[in-house]
Simulated assay, not measured.
Amino acid sequence: MTLSSPSARAVDLRVEPVDNVLDHVERSLQVELDRDTVVRKRRSVGARTDRRTWIRIERRGLDKVDVQGWNGTECAARLEGIAQPTWRGCVVWRDADEPVMWRADETELLPSAPIGNAILSEDPKLEDAWWQAFNASLDALAAQHTGRVATPDTVTITQALVTESIRSLSPTDDFDTTVERWVPAHADLNWANMTAPTFSPFDWEDWGNAPRGLDSASLWGSSLAVPALADRVRHERRHDFESRDGKLMTLFACSKILGPDAHPQDPRLEPARRMAEQVIAELQAG
């Protein structure tokens, strides 16, 4: 018999009252949060502490609480060769009124400020040293081993999901969508989750095994409104993009941009369409 958890109501933590949650974290971790530094995102809240650390608080429905992402920051602490803030500890509790779990992870402060929004509209003008550190961390991550599976957008990535997403772009085209190589990936790599001028990726809750090239393709998709930046991502990660799996992940990224919820004024639409057509032609040609 399979036990199922009730679904939690959809909540946007950018507007949901969270004072009680912040109070709970302070009591549990014996820390004082600087309320003037609170950063609120759709599914997480963060703030500085009086001991010069950062606490990230996440709300997740019971139906979404499992090994696939819930303890990502904690599990990422054992990764080697990755630039990331040191993890200090956490507190986890079940909501008394809803089918929801809360988790607060405490880490060292970021070495620099986040680069920008998830999708950039201006070139951040990153130094060569930043790109070198970026490449070193992504290569080190892909060389490690984990039993976790990546959950981009909190959805477990599977072969079926990859195939379905790619077929949404080319329902009549016939080419093999089978992924050959699965490697550890951050799975939420965008410009809001990396710092500069010192490179450091953060928000590791979704990391795990994914098709090779997922991170590279995701970052490229987040860069398409700045053509020179998108080209730089493809150049720096060309060994990913030139691989067959990398081409599949390029189509996977394009499917997210060109999906039914796409905004007609999104400047990424046309370059994503062009790239999808080019990559589909390459895959069909073998």
Rank of each mutant, 00 (worst) to 15 (best):
L214W: 11
L13K: 09
D123S: 08
D36W: 01
R273L: 09
W130L: 05
W70G: 02
A140S: 15
A104D: 07
L13T: 06
T177R: 00
A272K: 05
Q159L: 02
R60P: 00
T250R: 05
F175P: 02
M1D: 11
S222E: 13
N190V: 01
R60F: 03
N117E: 12
V65Y: 13
R244V: 01
Q30L: 12
L29H: 07
P85N: 10
P267N: 01
S165V: 00
A47S: 07
D105K: 02
G61F: 05
A210M: 01
K256L: 12
L3P: 02
V279G: 01
I257P: 04
R9L: 13
V21F: 08
R167N: 02
W220P: 08
S137D: 13
V91Y: 02
R274L: 14
A272F: 00
A253N: 01
E122P: 04
L141A: 10
W204T: 06
P6D: 15
H239D: 15
S4Q: 13
E80A: 08
L219R: 04
L33S: 11
A83F: 08
L62S: 05
Q278E: 14
R40I: 03
A217Q: 03
V155R: 09
M249R: 01
W54D: 08
S28R: 09
A185N: 02
E127P: 03
D12W: 03
